[in-house]
Structure formats: C-alpha cells, structure tokens
Design a binder for these strands. Structure first.
Lengths: 194, 194
DNA sequence: GCGTAACTAGACCGGTCGTCATAGTAGCGA
DNA sequence: TCGCTACTATGACGACCGGTCTAGTTACGC
C-alpha cells in the first residue's frame, strides 16, 4: 500500500463499519470522527459534500470491493453451486465476526433512502446493486444458463443475500445465510434444466 | 370501526408508513406529528416512552398484522406454491403502490438496531420475524414437508422476502419479488422431495 | 361549582452538522 | 538559510433541530 492510512481512507473505513451497524442516519459525524481519529475540520476538507458525500463514497467503495470479489470468484472457475456456497459462507462469516451487530451497509442505506428523498445515496446504492447483479449474471451464463434465466437467478440471489443479512442480524444467527444458499442452489438447478 | 381514528392510532399509522420510507432514525417526531395530525404534547401522553415506544408499538402492530395475514392465507387451504406466489405478489403490490419509496418497516428497523444498541426495538423486530417464520413453518408442514426442511424453508423464505423489499426499493422495480418467489418455489420443490 | 382525568401547547436543553479563522507544512527560488 | 506561496489540516464556534417535559386548558362526573 502506498501510505499506511490517510485521514480520508480512515474516515471511509469508519463510515462503512458504522453504517453496517446502525445505518446512515443512526451515526453522527462525531462518531465518525472519533472512530477514525480524524479531526473535525478534516472531514469537510476531504469531503466538501459533508456526511452525504462520505456516505456515497462508502457505498461506492463497498460496491467496488464486493464486485471485485464476485469477479475473482467467478474467474476462479468454480461451478455455480460452489459459487453460491462460497458467497453465502462468506456473508455468514462476515456477520459472525461482527457478532450479529452488523449487516450489509448497502441494505442499511437502501432501507433509508428512496429516489425521492436522498437521490445521491439512492443512486450510489442502486449502482452497486446493479454491478453485483451483472457479475452474478455472468457467473450464471458461464454455468450454461440461458440469458433470461440468468437474470432471474441473479436478481433472486441478490435479494436472498441482502435479506439474509437483515434477518440474521435480527435473529442473531447465521442460519438465514445457509438456508438462503439452499434456496438459490435449488433455483439454479431448476433454471439450468430449461 | 369503533372510532374513526384516535390520535394514538394515527401516530402509529404514521410511524409505520414513515419508517417504511426512511427508517427509524431517519424520521423525527416533528414529521410523525405532522403526518398524523396529532398535537405535539399528545405524543408523551400516549407514549410515555417517547419515540422508542412508538417504534416498538409500530413494529408490534405490523408484526401482528402480517402474522395474521400469513395465518389466514395458510388456513385458506392453498397449496404451498400458491401460498408462495400470493405472499410475493402481495409484497410486490405493496411496494408498487408506494412507488418504490418504501420497504418493509421491519427490515428498515432491523438494519439500524442490534441487540447491543437499541435492545427494545431489536427484540420487537426479532419477535415479529420469529412469529412470521413460525407461521411459514406451519404452512410448509401442512404441505407435507418434514419438520427439519420446513425450518429451512421458512428461514429462506423470510430472508428472500425481506431482501426483495430492500432490493426492489433500491432498483425501483418489482422484479426482485417475482424472482425471489421462483427461488422459494424451487426450494420448496426440492425440500418436499426428500 | 368542584375535583379528577384526559389532553394540549409551547418552552427547553442537549446535541447535531457545517463553517471559518487560524495554524502548520511542503516546495521553491534567491 | 530565508522568505514567500499554496496547500493541507485543525478545533472552537454557532445556528439549528432533535426529543422531552412541565405548566396549562378542556371535558366531565358529582
């Protein structure tokens, strides 16, 4: 890494982690500053757009990271069932590590903003979801699924994944991830058959 | 109806609708009061516990309502595929009516509160999710699924449902609901087979 | 009319976010 | 080494909005 950590990166890191746990409106800039160790003024130097800009950049960062992980997994050449298992095992692992105090930051922000109110954050989340879905479509296509079914598959998998985050946080249990994986594998099986 | 509307009920109604759109932290009491038409002081007369109590009661109300709808649907005697379709068509309808500015209030609140922070709201959401899941288990059992598979099924269906709310709000499209329904029907088919 | 209960309005305090004037630092030419 | 400039960084400040509470008003049985 070029530099161990800049205030800018630290701020975004903190935002990602805090939004996971309490959503966007649930965390104040004071907390962001405390957790990141950055001084107050630095925030508005690096992010003239204020809290909303941090939110958008946090979303963009997570979006890109996860998209990249999807891509690498797909390019590793695993079959679709293994792909599904790997994804849901990873998400289960993530929530477990955080002791069920966190979900997906996308889900948290998506729940709070619509296109009407908060268009910037909404657009950021929408873009990230679409990128993920495109990646999943590619994985499905490579497994031999036809184009129409691949779209159905990707949409359902994305929803299951995000829902598993929500439910497992509420239930303080990783079960939803594993069970969602089974549903998506069943869907894959059906969709590949025709 | 006994009385057309009491300030108490109006407040909870407004809370449910607003939490759907912007989450718990995203709406202030001022907005709650404006939307419900209730006078400012009435809030702490009806809800000594303040905003958090309103949140808990809103969650409890939605939880009970939805549980009841699950129960009625199950008792109507439809087969499991029709049951699944009906549920996801209903959720799709709900988000469409609100023009994708709203999701499930449970999901919105679940995303913001963990057991550590906000234990009351967390418990309320958890209770509602568990009640729904129990109802879905019953429906699966009645369709001939074995007990263990019924648990898997219900957990996956709950997650898919909540995820579809999140994703369809972000994507401004009902597609996630329909596609999730397909996944859950595929899972049902697999789980009934063994 | 009187006392109790139901209800309401407005003031209140605490904390929020964003601004700004100031301070530090790196680069550079003389 | 020094002075100058441009960039980066900082925390005190204040306007504002959040949720809460107390003092007051109305409704009603007796």
């Amino acid at each position: 890494m070029a530099k161990a950590s800049s205030a800018r990166e630290d701020l975004i890191d903190a935002a990602v982690e805090l939004f996971r746990a309490r959503g966007y409106e649930g965390v104040g800039v004071a907390e962001l500053l405390q957790k990141s160790g950055a001084p107050r003024g630095s925030l508005y130097f690096h992010f003239p757009g204020g809290k909303e800009q941090i939110g958008a950049e946090a979303v963009a960062r997570v979006g890109a990271e996860v998209e990249q992980r999807f891509r690498e997994l797909r390019q590793s050449g695993v079959d679709l069932d293994a792909y599904i298992d790997k994804v849901f095992k990873t998400t289960a692992q993530e929530v477990k590590e955080r002791e069920y105090h966190a979900s997906c930051p996308m889900a948290a922000i998506a729940a709070e903003f619509s296109s009407a109110h908060g268009p910037n954050l909404h657009a950021a989340v929408r873009g990230a979801f679409n990128a993920w879905q495109r990646e999943i479509v590619l994985a499905a296509l490579e497994s031999g699924m036809n184009a129409k079914n691949a779209e159905i598959f990707a949409s359902a998998m994305l929803a299951s994944m995000e829902g598993a985050f929500i439910v497992s946080k509420a239930q303080v249990s990783p079960a939803a991830h594993a069970n969602s994986a089974r549903a998506i594998k069943a869907l894959a099986s059906v969709l590949r058959a025709n």
